[in-house]
Each structure stands twice: as structure tokens, then as C-alpha cells.
Amino acid sequence: MRIRLNACLDAVNQVLLGKEPQVRLALACLLARGHLLIEDLPGMGKTTLSHALARVLGLSFQRIQFTSDLLPGDILGTSVFVKDSGQFVFHPGPIFAELVLADEINRATPKSQSALLEAMEEGQVTIEGATRALPEPFFVIATQNPVSQGGTFALPESQLDRFLMRLSLGYPAKAAEKALLLGDSRRSLLPRLEPLLDHAALALIQAEVPKVRASDALIDYVLRLVDATRSQPQFAWGLSPRASLALLAAARAWAFLDGRDYVIPEDVQAVLPSVVGHRLRERADPTGHGGGALVQWLLREVPAL
């Protein structure tokens, strides 16, 4: 099972060069049944990553480009009157895919954003009174462009909280970029990717991850981390219980990817920046962007043992 997971990782890394940690985190996020927010400049490989993940995991893939005139119906789907039968027939929207890429999520109005976010949280959508279940597994990768903020609707904290992780891909290393420039178009590699897992295997793995052992000592470490965010003066606010659950779930998935059936503090530390970074604000700058410095402080100062 793990061998197949590693094969998945290798396959994605073939397409997206030099981004092993981010790919691994994205996979961990998926295994932990969380959703992923990628914040990066255009052209850094966000789409490639999501597409490649969908291919190797054998998931159906849909991409929604968020724009300011996007309506909730464009995401969820609409009922269309069919003349022949004289009935309304529901046409499912792009959200009814197993892996949904919500591109530039902050370009859409809050109404459309919340339609997506609600679906992410509930795992089902209600349209015209009928509740329709979303496919299983259901994984959303949303992207944001952090630079061009004109005419955007920034996600409020409560909605950021719905994402298990926030990642940033960053520029590729020089060697990776050289390989990129020398080689084939990466997009053209995508169709050649073979699905390496099927739905049953993925479900099995997702069921295995919560069984990874988190000992008392480890839970204590998580509590110390959470407690530090609540008691130290530099934090504008502390982490919610949802955040501590998310942290533990992500750490479990990370440990699973590492081939262990127990979590160690290093696992928590590996996922900590992407899991809590978007949930923390500095007291000195509560509307500011990042909790990066705060996360570094947590990693450095909170006793791991």
C-alpha cells in the first residue's frame, strides 16, 4: 500500500519538478480528508499539481475558474427544463467531481465562495430543496493569487479555517527549472500518467490514517503548541479545537506517508507551518497576511518532549 503511495508521489514529482515537500504535503492533506489552499503566483504549477494528483489517484477532475460574475449555480449546477419530457432535469455543476480545482477563489463574490465552501464542509449540496451527495472521495484544491489583490474578495478567517492546509509552491530550484526547460512540455506528460490507485484503495488508505497511533506524549505536545498560541501575547488569537484536530490528522497522514504507524513530534512539526500558518495572526498586525514568524516561534520555543 505504501509502496503504491510512494509510486504516486514519484509519478507526480515527475511532472512537477523539484517540489517534493509540497507534493507530499498535498497528498497528506488528501489522505487526511482535508482541503488544500494554494497561494501562489500564476504559472507556478498549481494546476499541474492538482491535475497530476487527480490522474495518479484515479480521481475525476474538474476545474472552476472563479471570476467576479460567477454564480453559485455555475458551481453547483442547475435544473434545466427539458421540453421533450416536460420536466426539469438537474445538470450537475463542476463541483460534482472527485478533485475540484477552484482557481483564483478570491476573485468570486462572497456568495459564490460560500457555495463552494459550504459544499466542502458538508460533503453535500442542496439545490432547489433536494440534497445531493458529493462524490466520495471529495477533494478541493483552491488557489489564490497573493499579488494582484485588486477587485478581489479576500477569504475571511472563518472560511480560511475550512482548509486543512495552505501551501505555497514557490519558484523551482535552478536545476529543476533547467530540467523543465530542457524537457517536454509538462502538460503533455499529464495524459500519460497512469492511475496508480483506485477508489477502493484510496478509501482503504483514508480509513487507515486515523488509526495511526498518537501517544499521550505526542498529544501533550500538540496541546502545548495550541496552548502557546492561546497564552502567548504575540498571538492575536489562539488556535481553535478544529485546528488542533486538523493538526493531529495531518500529522497522522504525514507519519503514514513516512511509513510509520505512530506519530512523532517531527511529524507535527513537518505539517505545522501549512496547517496553522493561515489560522494565526500576529497581535501587532491582526489584519496582516501571515503567521509565518509565529509558526517559526512555535517550532523553536515550544518544548517538543
Partner: peptide, 9 residues
């Protein structure tokens, strides 16, 4: 050891 350093690291 730094306070935030785990046993393995």
C-alpha cells in the same frame, strides 16, 4: 538540544 527539537531530529 533546542527546546523545540524532537528526539529524532
Amino acid at each position: 538540544r533546542q527546546p523545540g527539537e524532537g528526539a529524532r531530529a
